[in-house]
Amino acid sequence: MKTNNPHSDKPKFSIPKDYFETLGEQVKAQIDLEELLGADAKSGFTSPEGYFEALPEVVMRKLSQASKLEGLVENNKVPKVIRLKRPALFTAITSAAAVALIAFATLWNTPEPSLEQLEVATIENYLLENDTDYSAYDLAELLPEGSLDNMTITDITDDAVLDYLDESIDIDDIYFN
């Protein structure tokens, strides 16, 4: 703190340390800004005409409505609104969004599908889920002519036969029927 007052008969005021050094810098910064913006710079925001005249009434009305509603709730005249739990709502919304996104991406990115691109499992699932009632013979008729000509029983491995039997036949049927 400086107490540099040569006139001892006058009150001794003090000033913060480095006051005059920072004052000059602060004034210059303010002047620089005002030169760029103009001395009477405004934010540029405006409000709708008549807004402030109407506001008190709007607020009073809102207060009165809120008080009435609270009064009704206190007297149990208004059933409480049961809100969906946020996690459930959030899950539902995000799931719906994800499904929509995947469907969109699939439709958008996938070129015209060909039979070769479909996996066997996809075709199997389609046939099972859509209850097409195709027999093995019906399906065989759909194959191009001659495609089964070169196929012999030896092309099917033992493991494939066992897997087929395992998946397709109920062993109890064999034992008990």
């Binding site: 934010s43 540029g44 925001f45 409000s47």
Partner: peptide
């Protein structure tokens, strides 16, 4: 979005100030 705000009539420098 201020430039298209009907309740903002600032000029270029005021926008830059914001």
């Amino acid at each position: 979005k201020l430039e298209s705000d009907v309740y903002f009539d600032g000029d270029e420098i005021q926008l830059k100030l914001q």
